[in-house]
Amino acid sequence: MSDIKARIDEIVNGNDVVLFMKGTALFPQCGFSSRAVAILDHLNVKFETVDVLQDAEIRNGIKDYSDWPTIPQLYVKGEFVGGSDIMMEMFEAGELQQLIADKDVAKA
């Protein structure tokens, strides 16, 4: 296992909800990341963010990690959920709320 995969494993398994994004929750640097944060805020869950712009190794590594070429990426209880399009579709369908409830995710 490469170092970067081990690092990402540690992050996604060490937090219930993790968003790999551009910028921070307070200052997103991209519209898609901004939308992803707004959805998580609305779900009232505790979430961690990782700013890929501050870490080139993670920025590249995360794309291979889930074979997903774009940022943001959401992980819940260690599982890859999707990017911002999927988050919005799931949110609108009530599926994201259901996933959060099913996985017994910690509240904000």
Binding site: F27, A38, H42
Partner: peptide, 17 residues
């Protein structure tokens, strides 16, 4: 750059259009 965080209220119409 998007330094402000839009509220979900403003985002939903965008997603639904």
């Amino acid at each position: 750059m998007c330094l402000t965080r839009p509220s979900l209220k403003t985002l939903l119409p965008f997603a639904k259009q």
